[in-house]
């Protein structure tokens, strides 16, 4: 997967575009969702839509900070593609009767804070930080969630949609891991220190305050929906496996930090981490809605409509 030719990848991305209109949203299969599944699935799909959408904003920030034009274009496409995934998932929700026309699901507080943080700080974040966090989120959350969904839902349209989404995601990950390795390649200790220094920043600390509870919250949510915790952890391990495959990848300090953190997330016995973070989850949930800042206008770009 790693060491791909980014110029060829850009061509591949350009030639692999698809539209919501390519999918027959009225095809039979929607009835396969049982009444028992529906409430759980509604919450699950809402989270998924928002994770895609937050990921999209992350790619937008990366496009702004990309070191060269090819990567800038790739991230610009990935930003749009994550939006497309969120749009397609919204369309699925509508197909399953979970949303009225023109509605979008309500994001939970953790998501709201993530959106606010991304909108305020992501553009100024060191490129290396986002370059490692995004693949981690994509593998761990996206990967695990999509796989779980396909195990649970037999609607063929859902499978068609996620075949396309996974196809896109494989390219996102290919680029993500290549970039992580590029960042670790030929770096001396001094280079690595230089790479880390800009990450020592109050904004990053604020980001952690949002990101840690978000992960634990997602873990709780998926477990509540019946996804075995091991599957989520399996996906997180995949990040460590692929990212750490080469020496260059392992040398990337951000990969190290994120891998180590993921291990901590997976290990419920690490009480020094989980007790305060779980407390943060509960605190976050209790923030009254009216105290949360207004959602930025990019959130309103979500649409389940194939045509505009």
């Amino acid at each position: 997967m790693a060491n791909i030719d980014l110029d060829k990848m850009l061509e591949k991305v350009k030639s692999s575009q698809w539209l919501l209109a390519d999918i027959d949203w009225d095809a039979p299969g929607a009835e396969m969702i049982s009444d028992e599944q529906r409430p759980k699935l509604t919450r699950f799909m809402s989270d998924l839509v928002w994770i895609e959408h937050v990921g999209a904003r992350g790619f937008a920030a990366m496009a702004k900070n990309a070191p060269d034009d090819t990567l800038r274009q790739l991230y610009t496409y990935f930003h749009a593609e994550e939006q497309r995934h969120a749009n397609a998932e919204l369309a699925l929700m509508r197909r399953w009767g979970m949303l009225e026309e023109g509605d979008i699901p309500v994001p939970n507080n953790s998501i709201r804070l993530s959106i606010e943080w991304l909108d305020r700080y992501a553009d100024d974040l060191p490129y290396h930080v986002l370059g490692s966090v995004i693949p981690a989120l994509e593998v761990a959350l996206d990967g695990a969630l999509c796989k779980f969904l396909l195990d649970e839902v037999s609607d063929p349209v859902c499978h068609d949609v996620f075949a396309r989404i996974n196809d896109d995601e494989s390219r996102h990950l290919g680029v993500g891991f290549t970039v992580m390795e590029m960042q670790g390649h030929d770096k001396t200790l001094l280079d690595l220190v230089e790479m880390i220094t800009p990450a020592v920043d109050l904004r990053v600390v604020l980001g952690l305050v949002v990101y840690w509870p978000l992960l634990n919250k997602m873990r709780d949510n998926v477990v509540a929906m019946g996804l075995p915790e091991e599957k989520l952890f399996g996906a997180m391990k995949k990040f460590e496996k692929i990212g750490g495959r080469t020496a260059a990848g392992r040398r990337n300090p951000f990969f190290r930090v994120i891998s180590a953190h993921m291990k901590t997330v997976m290990d419920r016995d690490q009480l020094f981490y989980h007790v305060p973070v779980d407390l943060m989850v509960r605190l976050t949930d209790r923030i009254p809605r009216r105290l949360l800042p207004a959602v930025p206008s990019w959130v309103k770009e979500l649409t389940a409509e194939p045509y505009a």
Partner: peptide
């Protein structure tokens, strides 16, 4: 600001998956 993929008979298809007519 989404990248344009192509022009269809009825409009412009962009990478966020929407056909703008």
């Amino acid at each position: 600001t989404w990248p344009i993929d192509r022009v269809s008979a009825q409009g412009i298809c962009t990478a966020e998956g929407v056909e703008h007519r």
